[in-house]
Design a protein around this nucleic acid. Structure first.
Lengths: 343, 343
DNA sequence: CATCGCACCGCAAACGTTTACGGTGCGATG
DNA sequence: CATCGCACCGTAAACGTTTGCGGTGCGATG
């Protein structure tokens, strides 16, 4: 099943077989046909280790993902959609996508170093980027092509794609203000992740733009999970001066919010206006319908892939994008979870 | 950064360096220390291609996963939890887990062949196994170690782990009957996936065991998504002789059911008893609380990893399990979604 | 007819490991 | 002192590719 056996069977040198298979010009069309036919018949496929060793390239792109369910920033379906978009691009270039999950007890930086040292991939897509992310500096220092899903302060000029947290925060606050709300809480993620800062800054700016004073008591932080939402809602309910509306940094929180409100005999929307974040499959079927924002994760995946290829020497000319730093727009999907305060 | 440079810098042959790094016995303890120190100082790490080429092994385990969000079969953090369990085992053996997502437009069998021919992994974990699954025959024929998450009729004696669909169906029917229900619907997945048959057979057997006639009109099939649940619920509501209870094959369906019932002005539980499947993070925060079943996906992952290692020659003696065919038990979590019919 | 160019192919090195085999030197044993 | 065993190390082959270089043969050109 090696190229040697294939060559012996054809009475051709292995060099010619290799050239024939790789579509090089200096090989007789007839022999090429013979080689391809024999390869197919014998089920030959080039050994990846041999090829990688010789060429120094793997034709594999790695996607690092954290699997900590306790504090997750995204779920399975989020990533699946992104993967799908990424793969539509890679399929055209015979590149394979492999996902490299980071164990919940592992440090993401150690995990990345391991990935790099194992030479899994020619390029990497990083998710769950931190505000200060040593992984980014590490990759830049090593000259490894990469792109991140999520902004970061580290590394300066690398490529990234991110969701429009500013837009969502600003639009949500504006919408709630227009509907009569002035006491608007924020359910944010814990510090560390960059979107936490981005989201809160935009929230504060939006409040200021509408002449509303910032109240740190109603800016909460917790895990981005259903349980996190439940707990944050509980905190809000316990406040003496309860907010009339809340803006969520993630739609998973909404599920916990809905549950906690129900337990208190309250109705989401009527008793507390809620604007979620992304229109996930789960959020889409909440009732009352969650007001949130739509974006195509498939398209985000496509853009991620293209941005990565744009940084790889072998593909740079096919995708002349330079360094991409793109905030992905999101479209409001009005629901029934944020009705006017005094109808 | 190659072993050659390392050897030159130490004035030792590369063979000795290799032996020192790999912990072989016939090397002087002092030189081993020197080698290890120098390797660390120079940041040396063995090239994986070279090693794989020589040894014919990759120290990588692949996990195939479908990324079709339209017909997805698991909840939003299902795989993450499983990955985490798998990695806790693999970490002890310096094995790396890589996830190999199958593009939604790809045939899973083609995808597997590609994975195999690229020699990504020493062993594989297959998910989304079909009732008849050519991938299983293919792997057996090639002698590639694997284990599947989910039963299949193919391949005879391979190892698999599966959830207890029989137990859930039987227990759910029994519980509903005990609470006065006799007209019990089934919300099942589409044909093809094995659990569809297993689940329905157990449902029918349970009905028969309680002397209830089987009515094909209230056995529905659809996608295992929130939308699928929504649509199935709609079908049930349109029936002239509406069932008073429904057993779900997957908790994602519950989210759609809840929504559709709300839209009809009905209350889950009171107007239609619902027993879901797994206690996912999403299902956990439904209100009224969904009656469902708990299992530790982390532990399933651990078992998957161990079962796979038990089939691999290099680890067989460490995990003398033989071929594992295990139905994972699930524990009832009573909720408020299935109250007695006539209290 | 001599020469050139070109199409095609074989040869062999190189990528970075691991490992079987043999060799050296030294202490211990007789 | 001769011999043996052993601890340690170097040598080189092998894994499967790709690719630069050179060589062969043939048609075309002068």
């Amino acid at each position: 099943m090696s190229i040697k056996e294939l060559a012996q069977r054809l009475n051709i040198s292995i060099g010619t077989v290799s050239r024939a298979l790789n579509g090089r010009a200096d090989v007789n069309p007839d022999t090429r046909k013979r080689v391809l036919a024999a390869a197919k018949a014998m089920g030959y496929v080039a050994n990846q280790s041999g090829r990688s060793l010789r060429q120094g390239t793997t034709n594999v792109i790695g996607f690092t993902m954290e699997t900590n369910v306790e504090t997750k920033t995204h779920g399975d379906t989020f990533f699946m959609s992104v993967f799908d978009g990424v793969q539509t691009v890679f399929a055209r270039h015979k590149l394979d996508l492999v996902v490299l999950p980071c164990h919940s007890e592992d440090d993401p930086f150690d995990h990345l170093r391991r990935v790099v040292s194992r030479q899994f991939a020619d390029g990497l897509i990083l998710s769950a980027t931190q505000r200060q992310d040593p992984r980014i500096d590490y990759l830049i220092e090593r000259g490894i092509p990469f792109v991140t899903l999520g902004r970061s302060l580290s590394g300066g000029e690398h490529s990234w794609i991110d969701m429009d947290f500013e837009g969502v925060a600003a639009q949500s606050v504006a919408r709630l203000v227009a509907r009569g709300h002035t006491r608007i809480a924020l359910a944010n993620t814990t510090r560390g992740i960059n979107l936490s800062y981005v989201f809160e800054d935009a929230y504060r700016a939006a409040l200021a733009g509408h002449g509303i004073a910032y109240d740190p008591d109603i800016v909460l932080r917790g895990d981005i999970t259903e349980l996190g939402g439940y707990q944050l809602c509980e905190k809000l309910l316990a406040l003496p001066n309860r907010p009339t509306a809340v803006v969520l940094v993630n739609e998973s929180l909404a599920i916990g919010f809905y549950r906690r409100l129900h337990e208190a005999g309250l109705t989401p929307g009527r008793d507390m206006a809620i604007i979620g974040f992304r229109q996930s499959p789960q959020a889409r079927f909440l009732s009352p319908a969650l007001t949130c924002y739509r974006l195509s994760l498939h398209d985000v995946g496509v853009e991620l892939a293209q941005s990565l290829l744009a940084t790889m020497p072998a593909y740079k000319d096919l995708y002349p994008l330079g360094t991409v730093q793109k905030i992905w727009p999101m479209e409001l999907v009005p629901g029934e979870s944020d009705p006017p305060l005094h109808p």
